[in-house]
């Protein structure tokens, strides 16, 4: 029952977003072009590096291409569902719109997190998948049904990690208006998630595996498809980390709510 109600609400939010996007059609298409350009840029970086070496750690060229495709897919789907919403929380607080949302008979976190959908993200996500498919062909890998399902589930876990951490950071805006800078700073870290994990070691690797799991998010799903997983525990680690991150963000959110005393109204 509850689920049905929420899916109706979410359907309405989707319709809103579609209408909004279609109001600026040329802009919508241009943005897709910009994202494609950046994606091509990352691929060319790898292309150039592999002109001068044939492996980074134990990663070959097409394996890294696959990683970049996976990372792009995850980032774009994250962007489609959550990015705008997370960055806008501080605006909602500053302008007092949050008060209005708190009065609505729905879960406030649900509403804040999923208010807008960025449709371009889905289009760009497919370009990531297309590149992965091409890389798989180059590697002579034919992933079976199970590993494809596993891949999407791991991607979902990765997206959940990104969402939880970014949401947690954006709740800082309950205390300071500067939070937006921190949220965009986190977005910068996405750059790390498309790097092959074995390029790193020591503190850096530990930090970005366990504290901020950037080196798990895209690496684990890509390794599953590229048959590079050293042990199934890597997958367990990713899913468990996602659970921990989500729990932390819920605790942070509740704590922030408890201390919220409206801004401008």
């Amino acid at each position: 029952m509850n689920f049905k109600r929420y899916s109706t609400i979410y359907g309405a939010l989707w319709r809103n977003s579609v209408v909004r996007e279609m109001g600026f059609k040329s802009n919508f298409i241009l943005w897709i072009f910009v994202e494609l350009l950046w994606f091509a840029l990352q691929l060319s970086f790898i292309g150039v590096i592999y002109l001068h070496t044939d492996h980074i750690g134990d990663w070959t060229k097409w394996q890294v291409v696959m990683l970049i495709g996976a990372s792009h897919f995850i980032q774009q789907i994250f962007q489609a569902f959550f990015l705008v919403n997370c960055t806008q929380l501080s605006e909602l607080i500053r302008t007092g719109k949050l008060d209005f949302m708190l009065l609505l008979p729905v879960n406030t976190r649900f509403l804040i997190s999923l208010r807008q959908v960025d449709l371009g993200g889905f289009v760009n996500g497919t370009s990531g998948l297309a590149v992965m498919a091409y890389a798989a062909k180059q590697l002579h890998i034919m992933p079976g049904f199970l590993s494809i399902v596993g891949f999407f589930l791991l991607c979902a876990a990765g997206i959940l990690i990104h969402y939880s951490l970014m949401f947690l950071l954006s709740t800082i805006s309950f205390w300071t208006v500067r939070a937006q800078g921190i949220v965009w700073g986190y977005y910068n870290l996405f750059n790390i998630s498309r790097m092959p994990d074995s390029a790193f070691q020591g503190f850096f690797k530990a930090f970005f595996t366990f504290a901020i799991p950037m080196l798990l998010v895209a690496n684990v799903p890509a390794k599953l498809i590229a048959l590079k997983l050293q042990s199934p525990w890597e997958m367990v680690l990713l899913v468990a980390t996602a659970g921990v991150c989500f729990t932390l963000s819920e605790i942070g959110w509740r704590f922030a709510m408890k201390h919220y005393t409206s801004a401008s109204s």
Binding site: I49, H52, T53, H55, I56, G57, R178, G181, I182, W184, G185, Y186, N188, L189, N191, I192, M195, P196, S198, A199, F200, F204
Partner: peptide
């Protein structure tokens, strides 16, 4: 403060790139 965040966060991907190159030279 924004500038400080920008400069500080900008260093992390830079660090990653440098590690990447180190790994390549190690090989």
């Amino acid at each position: 403060v924004n500038f400080l965040f920008r400069a500080a966060f900008g260093i992390i991907p830079l660090m990653a790139t440098i590690y990447l190159w180190r790994k390549i030279y190690e090989g």
